[in-house]
Design a protein around this nucleic acid. Structure first.
Lengths: 200, 200
DNA sequence: TGAATTCTAGAATGAAGATTCTAGAACGTG
DNA sequence: CACGTTCTAGAATCTTCATTCTAGAATTCA
């Protein structure tokens, strides 16, 4: 019944993604997005109420795409394999999704959308809930009750921060993280989580 | 002979620092800086030719303040003490200079100044030269000739990226990095660089 | 084919900020 | 105290974008 869309929501987000990855959030102007697609600016507004909303949706889409694999990796039965798998998943994902990784690693939600749209507040709040739960469960299984939070901090550091740190400078340089950082991440995780060499 | 300045360069940079630390580069508008100091915007332009130049100078001032101690720490005679000292210096510096650490860790030079002023190009290029040299020397002393660069990457990871990763999420939260991350950083450095427990 | 609905086109409008410009004030010196 | 210099004051100007608005085109269905 409806006339088919010439510029879909995902196409617009893809264009915004390229601009953000290339020149930061500031580069993703409505005019810039439209120009990249060969569309008039009005068409962008037909899909997105505002620029903030558009960028917020880009953020959400990107995070969700990333999270799926991470949670899956962390769900491995073997505790150590789960940890190492999750940490390495981060590295591989960044390598295979350069632009999206740039958005996620080089900026933060507040930088993308100046004022996070009210209507997405709830979504933002729960965005990391599943990942957080998965990590907390992992910490619990690994260290038991964690009175002061140090154990949780340690797991977050090993599973997220370390791979983040290892990849960042390469993403800034615009190149995929080199293979050598897989070793660094693996070694670091083993060390921080006390995993011995026997584990795959 | 000259009339004494009411608004000095450093005072202006301090105001800009607070704004950037509080709300990102975008918050440091000329008007905002002026308002924070109770100065008219024209006075800002008397000191700085443009906003980009102002923010670029803030970046340079911040980096230089940070680098001094880092290079000093890395200069320790004992190789292992130098490495651990440098890594921990990062953490301590961030803890004691929250606002400046936010600027350095949460943003990048390109984000601060949209177009890095031409006149500062050379300065930007050599800004990290000393630190880079110090790190490369350290890598050389520790691992000898490094044909494929993996050794250098390893040292950069241990001395910079790891402490960066450990502190970042706390700076985002606006709180000083907790004491527990000193342990994480130390452990990680020891592991990545193959330093055994005997070292202080 | 005609009506209803969904989209695309772009020009017009507005707001936020950077930058410029002209006066005039404040200081140390001779 | 008068002068030359260095600064401060802010109003006025210019740009860059986001956002709005009005027409008009494209499709599907009856």
């Amino acid at each position: 019944m409806p006339r088919p869309a010439k510029f879909t929501e995902d196409q617009i987000l893809d264009a915004a993604l390229r601009l953000v990855a290339g020149g930061g959030p500031g580069a993703a102007t409505i005019g810039g997005i439209a120009a990249l697609m060969g569309a008039p600016s009005g068409s962008i507004y037909y899909r997105f109420k505002s620029r903030d909303l558009l960028l917020a949706r880009l953020w959400i889409r990107t995070i969700k795409r990333f999270q799926q694999g991470f949670i899956a990796a962390l769900g491995h039965d073997d505790l150590d394999a789960a940890a190492l798998g999750a940490a390495l998943y981060n590295v591989r994902w960044a390598r295979e999704h350069l632009d999206e990784a740039k958005v996620l690693l080089l900026y933060r939600s507040e930088e993308l959308a100046a004022r996070w749209p009210h209507e997405l507040g709830a979504e933002l709040a729960t965005l990391n809930a599943d990942v957080f739960t998965a990590i907390r469960d992992h910490a619990l299984r690994r260290y038991g009750e964690d009175s002061d939070g140090a154990a949780l901090r340690r797991v977050i550091f090993a599973l997220i921060d370390v791979s983040y740190a290892a990849g960042r400078r390469h993403l800034i340089a615009g190149e995929p993280p080199p293979p050598s950082i897989d070793d660094l991440v693996t070694e670091t995780c083993r060390c921080v989580l006390g995993i011995n060499q026997a584990v795959t």
